[in-house]
């Protein structure tokens, strides 16, 4: 693979990691809603915390997919 090809692979990997952008928005939304829920209903804090972590981790999946594709691009097409 020539120099241009390797450069294109690097650009592709960089673009794949951009999935993290929307994931950040989603996780922020989840955290904000959790804060609202605790403010409205402080007794349920423990349950809300576990659901917050679950929701945030599921939202993170999207970013992980992008990262996986970036790793595949870098390590397979090198």
């Amino acid at each position: 693979m020539g120099d241009i090809g390797r450069g294109l692979v690097a650009i592709g990997a960089g673009l794949a990691v951009l999935t993290g952008m929307m994931t950040g928005l989603g996780q922020g939304y989840v955290a904000g809603k959790a804060v609202e829920a605790v403010g409205r209903n402080p007794e349920a804090e423990n349950k809300i915390r576990s659901m917050l972590i679950l929701g945030a981790a599921i939202a993170e999946t999207c970013a992980i997919y992008g990262m996986l594709i970036a790793f595949l691009l870098i390590f397979v097409f090198n």
Partner: peptide, 16 residues
Amino acid sequence: ISMSLRLFGNITSGGT
């Protein structure tokens, strides 16, 4: 697909 890739992606990215 989503369950297998989620676990695999998290562990692999951590290791890498």
